[in-house]
Nucleic acid binder design. Structure first.
Lengths: 203, 203
DNA sequence: CCGTTTTGTTATTCCGTGTAACAATCATGA
DNA sequence: TCATGATTGTTACACGGAATAACAAAACGG
């Protein structure tokens, strides 16, 4: 993680202010369209002076990034933990666990999907998920062709996000167990089979 | 198409103004971020008075809708024409034709994908494509389960958009012929196979 | 407790939105 | 062709948010 060094003891006022601003933004995103949220609205809800926002962030997007980075780091840990078991545990179970996790963190995912409307953030999330699968999915590692791997991981990442979006929009109707089956057959199995067919015919 | 009746003879000044505004927006979207485009910028480039914009559109998004509706109507005609041949022509060829079409209309698709950052517009585009496949894809019509069909068409639509995005970002590197193979195996074949497996196990 | 840092208050500048009134221009049919 | 209605341009205005500046008040940390 390239960036500024993280000092051990941050001023408690700074920690508090940043937390209040993050919480305010999260609340607002769940209530209304992200594009319609003003800095003033954020600071008012956070019970913080207007200028204080600019003392910590350059823009609304930067604050959103910080919020999502926290959530994605958590998600990544979760997926990585699952990936280590992927040889033993069936893919169907892996899928079920993913959707159970989403169910428990529905708010985070609503924010994540809502903020897909910000192009930069969307591509960042896609890249994060794609990288995770590239590292964790053994069959993909064995494919030599870089283009095919790029295509496949991109497809998996966007398809998974799309599937999650569809699920949340349908009030999480099919159970996580059923969604696990969908995840396995529609996303993972399908992609791996297609990758096999494509690398055989040398794309 | 529900809406206001379309009179045969529109005032030429109105036609001209709306065309100028559309062209100005298209040019601007190709140059910079959609969110950063102001009404003033649009009217200035269109060489039209500021207030004239509001005499024709309620918002920037509405103008963008009009731009995309034109392009999507064209695309839809193209896809429908392909669909009618889909029994005779192989899916691989259908995919090749789609990507050749995209290559010829790269600007339109760049705009379409860029404007995905507007949530409302994105879901509208997804719905349009999904509906097209629902009507034209024979194997999907035979599936009784409405949830599965909804899931499958949504998956096809978002996957296709995602694939197009990936392709344009990679400078249209694999040829349309190769992309046709990808389209067939990664999107259509995969989805249909998965749908078969899922409806068999009754999702 | 005192110096440092952070936060709050107030004011200011700039820019975009959206509306209104009136003048000028254009289109069209009698 | 020319009179009438519709469209466009010009100017002005109110409103709100973005972003910055200067100074006062409060809180931290040693």
């Amino acid at each position: 993680m390239p960036g500024k060094a993280s000092p051990k003891h941050v001023d408690p006022r700074v920690k508090r202010t940043r937390r209040l601003l993050r919480e305010a933004l999260v609340g607002l995103i769940l209530e209304k369209d992200y594009a319609a949220i003003s800095i003033k609205e954020i600071t008012t809800r956070a019970e913080v002076a207007y200028i204080t926002f600019y003392r910590h962030y350059e823009s609304r997007d930067q604050l959103l990034m910080e919020v999502l980075d926290e959530g994605l780091a958590d998600l990544r840990v979760h997926i990585d933990r699952l990936a280590k078991q992927s040889d033993e545990v069936a893919l169907e179970t892996e899928g079920r666990l993913i959707f159970e996790y989403i169910q428990q963190h529905a708010d985070l995912f609503r924010i994540l999907l809502k903020s897909q409307s910000v192009a930069r953030i969307r591509s960042r999330v896609v890249r994060t998920i794609a990288t995770t699968y590239q590292k964790s999915c053994a069959p993909l590692e064995r494919v030599g062709d870089r283009t095919t791997v790029s295509l496949a991981t991109h497809h998996i990442a966007t398809s998974l996000l799309s599937l999650i979006e569809w699920w949340l929009e349908h009030d999480r109707h099919p159970s996580p167990t059923e969604m696990g089956k969908v995840y396995k057959s529609l996303i993972i199995d399908s992609t791996l089979r297609a990758v096999g067919a494509l690398s055989a015919s040398s794309v």
